[in-house]
Design a binder for these strands. Structure first.
Lengths: 337, 337
DNA sequence: CGTTGCATTTAGATCGTTCTAAATCACAGG
DNA sequence: CCTGTGATTTAGAACGATCTAAATGCAACG
């Protein structure tokens, strides 16, 4: 059943050259004469030769494989990110080893060990909440190149690709203020990540800049049900908010369900905004105003950073921060006037 | 920068045993004496030894790596599927090579060659629309074990994991008929896949069983915008439908937007149902009645089938078909009575 | 004390590639 | 005809594991 592999030796024997020559042809070396190359390529096609990249890596230490670790595969923010990464890697003839840390640092460690064992050239990591702050250091000591993305441990320790969350939140707050909202609450999540810190920091800063009132911060489970349940808590805030900015669109959609159940009409009685502009933002009712972060673009950027890092391991760490964009729909309320 | 790998030889030297013994320890062989094992394990921990799986595979032909090819990473049906696969593989200490065919058979072929080159143990494949019918045959000739999932080329040629789409459609049609709907249309997609054929076949069969009228089949782009645009076409069908069953929830959500733009209230004036019960079905307005297909469960089943196949390559092909479940929300109209 | 049997350990070949250093070839120039 | 040069080609040693077959140690037995 298991068919035996066609090897360089076999091709060499049939083409009447040496193994080394065939290897050169495989690697498109300019050293080999045109007629030899043609002959060898023909034989390779006939025998359906497939180069064994594992064996190659054993010798030359490049597996053309990169690991990607995301905390979650249900949130489409991460899957769009992943799609961006995968596209660039595919174009670059690399292959993606995917793993899901489920936001658990222990699992994340296991995965990294597996990746090391498989000899990945590098890793793109969205660090799990609660990751050991020394992880970038450990990875450096392992000699494993890493690009962090979407979240970051030890700012500036490694390459990083992300969106400007702080500015994104600012855009949202400014938009709400322009529409006349003054008491703004923030619906946050429990998991301690740099993304959360940045969004909260951006919130505080934007309130200060616009003079809007901080109506309070509520924490919800990261699921639409969780957010729906938080509606009561939001409505009970001492200074009753007239707008809620949510950590992401999933929470925003859930919150809108919760508000409507409580008889509050989102978009009219209470402005609601999301962050991330997931595809579902278009489909909720009312359609959700949000801040587009272009996760696929971030994935592309992360993949490029890793490619650069692999080409030049000694280069100084680089950051690739994409600008967010305000997407106005209906949940933030009618246009002023 | 690139740190040199710790090898078996090194561990052996420091632990004062032979390379072969260390190898036995790594593989948890019962042949080695307890005190030796302890000593060796201690040294491995000290040196941070990581076994090179590529080198191991070269000798024993098992890479503990499987390839997964999906046509799309945006549709959460596929990402939930992927999450299921990844979970089982992780538990089983295997790693997933992910690739996205974008429903393009040429890309899919490239990916398979890459996978072969990386020495994957097997592949889980959701074949791209338009895949060469002989692909299962070619893969058999390559000696590459494969489990098809969600879609199928050459029924019964390989292991297969999926949901009973035909029965799923039947549940939907029966539900609509129970609510008094009589003229049912189907909003389909262009891509020719077994999933599409089964859903259409199920539709025809269910209409025959229930006596409902086929109000026509409309094809949309596989995106919510595409479906929104199709609303006009649906409304223009000669026997004006009173219900529309959609190929999936994304189309259903888009169609509802399109209907509302045209002044038709989904759920009241026109029943709308989706298939797949994606998370977004909860969040649309009105919430979408749908048929849960449990993609994560299918992913789990596919991973198990592949594990079985790897353990016993000669076993006869097996099918794992999950039963669908009706999820009633509001888009299908008020409860009868 | 030599032998047998069992548990444990090991040397050396091997997997399919790439690398290094050297060999071979073709041909021009002296 | 010999030598030097640049272009091709190659033999053989890696890479880091696993496998095979055999060696070793040790205790008990006759």
């Amino acid at each position: 059943m298991q068919r035996k592999r066609v090897t360089l030796d076999e091709v060499a024997r049939i083409a009447g050259v040496s193994r080394a020559t065939v290897s050169l042809v495989v690697r498109k070396s300019p050293l080999v004469a045109d007629h030899t190359r043609e002959k060898v390529e023909q034989v390779m096609a006939e025998l359906d030769y497939v180069r064994d990249i594992g064996a190659a890596r054993l010798r030359n230490n490049s597996s053309r494989t990169v690991g990607v670790i995301v905390p979650n595969l249900v949130n489409s923010f991460f899957t769009e990110f992943l799609a961006g990464v995968e596209r660039v890697m595919g174009e670059d003839d690399r292959v993606v080893l995917l793993a899901n840390s489920q936001d658990d640092p222990r699992r994340q460690d296991d995965i990294l060990q597996r990746f090391r064992g498989h000899g990945v050239d590098g890793v793109i990591l969205c660090p799990a909440a609660g990751t050991d702050p020394d992880l970038p250091g450990r990875m450096r000591r392992w000699g494993l190149p890493v690009v962090q993305s979407l979240r970051e441990i030890g700012r500036g320790a490694t390459d990083y690709a992300g969106a400007d969350y702080i500015d994104g939140v600012r855009l949202a707050v400014q938009h709400l203020v322009r529409l006349g909202r003054r008491r703004i609450a923030f619906l946050s999540v429990g998991a301690r990540t740099s993304a959360r810190e940045e969004r909260l920091a951006g919130f505080a800063r934007a309130l200060a800049e616009t003079g809007a009132k901080d109506a309070g911060i509520v924490e919800a489970d990261l699921s639409w049900e969780g957010a729906a349940h938080s509606a009561a808590e939001v409505l009970a805030l001492p200074s009753r908010p007239d707008a809620v900015l949510c950590f992401n669109d999933i929470l925003a959609a859930g919150l809108m369900r919760g508000l409507r159940r409580a008889g509050i009409e989102p978009g009219r009685d209470m402005a609601v905004m999301g962050l991330d502009d997931l595809p579902l933002a278009e489909l909720t009712y009312p359609p959700l105003s949000s801040i587009a972060m272009d996760p696929a673009g971030i994935g592309v950027a992360a993949a490029r950073l890793l490619a650069r890092r692999l080409a030049d391991p000694a280069a100084p760490p680089e950051r690739s921060i994409l600008a967010p964009r305000l997407v106005i729909r209906e949940s933030s309320g009618a246009e002023a006037g």
